[in-house]
Simulated assay, not measured.
Amino acid sequence: MILTERETPKGLLVSVCDRDVLGETFENGEVSITVTEEFYGGEEAGEERVATTLARASVGNLVGERSVSLAIDRGHVEEANVLDIDGVPHAQFLRM
């Protein structure tokens, strides 16, 4: 997985994507997502590092089967809230 961490005035913003979706665009009707290098590009990270970072995040953006599944398994995202965009899972969360 590719992990990016950004400190913001509102807390830690984390983006995670599966390597195979980086640089791709997915569309489903009026919904479209482009997994850009600028936002999702970061460093390769294993499951434990991603899970630890998601636990500290105020905002999370996830794209890809592996990334979203990890967020579901660790309780950061509910499966019912995951979007399917052209067969690719996408999820976001916000902690207040």
Results as ranks from 00 to 15, higher is better:
I2E: 15
I2Y: 12
I2C: 03
L3V: 07
L3Q: 04
L3A: 07
E5Y: 08
E5R: 14
E5T: 03
R6S: 14
R6C: 13
R6P: 13
E7C: 03
E7N: 04
P9L: 05
K10W: 14
K10F: 15
G11D: 08
G11W: 13
G11I: 05
G11M: 12
L12P: 09
L12H: 10
L12E: 06
V14N: 13
V14P: 15
V14L: 15
S15I: 05
S15K: 09
V16M: 04
V16K: 00
C17G: 01
R19V: 13
D20I: 00
D20P: 03
V21Q: 05
V21L: 03
V21I: 01
V21R: 01
G23D: 02
G23M: 00
E24Y: 04
E24G: 03
T25W: 15
F26M: 04
F26T: 02
F26V: 06
E27A: 14
E27Q: 14
E27Y: 12
E27H: 12
E27V: 11
N28F: 06
E30Q: 01
V31Q: 11
S32W: 01
T34R: 11
T34W: 14
T34I: 04
V35I: 12
V35K: 01
T36W: 02
T36C: 08
E37Y: 06
E37H: 12
E38Q: 05
E38G: 02
Y40R: 00
Y40I: 00
Y40S: 01
Y40F: 14
Y40C: 02
Y40M: 08
G42R: 01
E43F: 15
E43R: 15
E43I: 13
E44L: 05
E44H: 00
E44V: 01
A45P: 10
A45F: 12
A45L: 06
A45W: 02
A45E: 10
V50L: 05
V50I: 15
T52H: 04
T53K: 15
L54I: 08
L54T: 08
A55C: 05
R56W: 04
A57C: 13
V59G: 06
G60T: 09
G60I: 05
G60L: 08
L62H: 14
L62V: 05
V63N: 06
G64P: 13
G64D: 13
E65Q: 15
E65F: 15
R66C: 04
R66E: 14
S67M: 03
S67L: 07
S67F: 07
V68I: 08
L70Y: 15
L70K: 12
A71Y: 12
A71R: 12
I72C: 09
D73N: 10
H76F: 05
E78Q: 01
E79D: 11
E79F: 02
A80N: 02
N81A: 13
N81V: 02
V82W: 00
V82P: 06
V82M: 01
V82G: 07
L83M: 12
L83V: 03
L83F: 10
L83G: 06
D84M: 00
I85L: 13
I85N: 09
I85C: 10
D86H: 11
D86Q: 09
G87N: 10
G87K: 04
V88I: 14
P89N: 03
P89Q: 08
H90C: 07
H90M: 06
H90I: 04
H90D: 07
A91Q: 10
A91I: 09
F93I: 02
F93D: 13
F93N: 07
R95F: 10
R95W: 07
R95T: 11
R95C: 03
M96D: 01
